Amino acid sequence: MLYRVEGIVIRSMDYGEGNKIITLCTQTHGKIGVMARGARKLKSRHAAITQPFTYGEYVFYRQNTGLGTLNQGEIIESHFSLRGDLVLAAYASYACELLDRSLHDEEVGGFWFSQLKSCLEGLSAGKDPQIVIHLYEMKILQASGYGPSFETCVSCGSSEHSALISPRLGGRLCRRCHHHDPTAKVVSPGTLKLLMLFEKMDMRRLGNIVVKDSTKAELKQIMRSFMDMQLALNLKSRHFLDQLDKYEI
């Protein structure tokens, strides 16, 4: 059967002599693997359309389930600037790998697709990459069924204002429920405000937000705790991002 889909290349690997296998996050068919024959050759018509982070329209043939074979493709947005910058490429790679590991092959990917598309657009537009990624992480947690709650206490439902955050229990705790998780972290008002904003905001609505370095550092620690506690994914791209932070590249 012949398929025509809009998709984003979230993974690309060499296969055989001159071929590539790409993984697409599509708007209508979830995550799909497609063989692009000859894509590694310099003059291949598939070379550009199979680059990581590329958003395009893909036409491929596939029998039932399994790997498809690419017939043709047209680039909608190449995101060339992301591949040309080491830091932006690292953030974009993390966004793609996180989605790849979170989204099952047969799972409908409309929401996942829209959030990834907006994430890559935000990175390309020069928005603060750390803020873009932390909002994206929040959307991944929500789409995976582990979205944190910050409006009320996750234990008793109290609306008492508290800056206690429990990644293990999945959100904010009131002071009376602190004993349920003694390791809950006290965060600054600025970090709590961002967490509450991220819970409600769609990636497509993110503007240019200016955040203090101290708040970003605290936000990174909290979001790292949520990702580790709720998803527990060992991602190569995140390790590389950590190395960039370590050497301040």
Rank of each mutant, 00 (worst) to 15 (best):
L192T: 08
I22N: 09
V211K: 04
Q63S: 14
K193L: 14
Y146A: 06
L169H: 04
Y55P: 02
E74R: 12
V34W: 01
K246A: 14
Y136T: 10
A39G: 06
W112F: 14
S162Y: 03
N208F: 11
E137T: 08
S162F: 04
E77R: 14
P148I: 01
V108L: 08
L235Q: 10
Q72H: 04
E160C: 04
S188L: 12
T69Y: 01
I249T: 05
G109W: 09
D242F: 04
K41H: 13
R4N: 15
I222R: 09
N64S: 15
L206T: 09
I21T: 08
I22C: 11
E151H: 09
K185Y: 05
S93T: 08
M227H: 06
K212A: 15
A47I: 11
G147I: 06
L197M: 14
I49S: 15
Y61M: 12
Y136F: 15
D242M: 05
E106T: 12
R238S: 10
Y3P: 03
L120E: 06
D128Y: 05
S155F: 00
L233N: 07
R45N: 12
K216M: 07
I209K: 01
G7I: 08
G190C: 09
S114D: 13
S12I: 02
H239Y: 03
G170Y: 05
H161K: 02
I22L: 14
I10A: 01
E218W: 13
F150S: 03
L197S: 10
M35C: 06
I165R: 13
L98D: 09
V132N: 10
E218L: 12
R37M: 07
G171A: 06
L88F: 02
L206P: 09
I76W: 07
D105K: 05
Y61K: 07
G145H: 13
K43T: 15
G30V: 10
L235I: 14
G68Q: 02
L194G: 03
S124K: 13
Y94T: 00
H239V: 04
Q115R: 08
V132W: 06
I140T: 14
R238M: 07
D14S: 12
K220P: 01
T152Y: 00
G7N: 07
L141T: 03
Q221H: 02
A95K: 04
H161R: 02
C96M: 06
A90V: 04
G171E: 05
R45V: 11
I165Q: 13
Y146V: 00
E77P: 00
Y3S: 07
I140Q: 07
L135F: 08
A48L: 14
A95W: 02
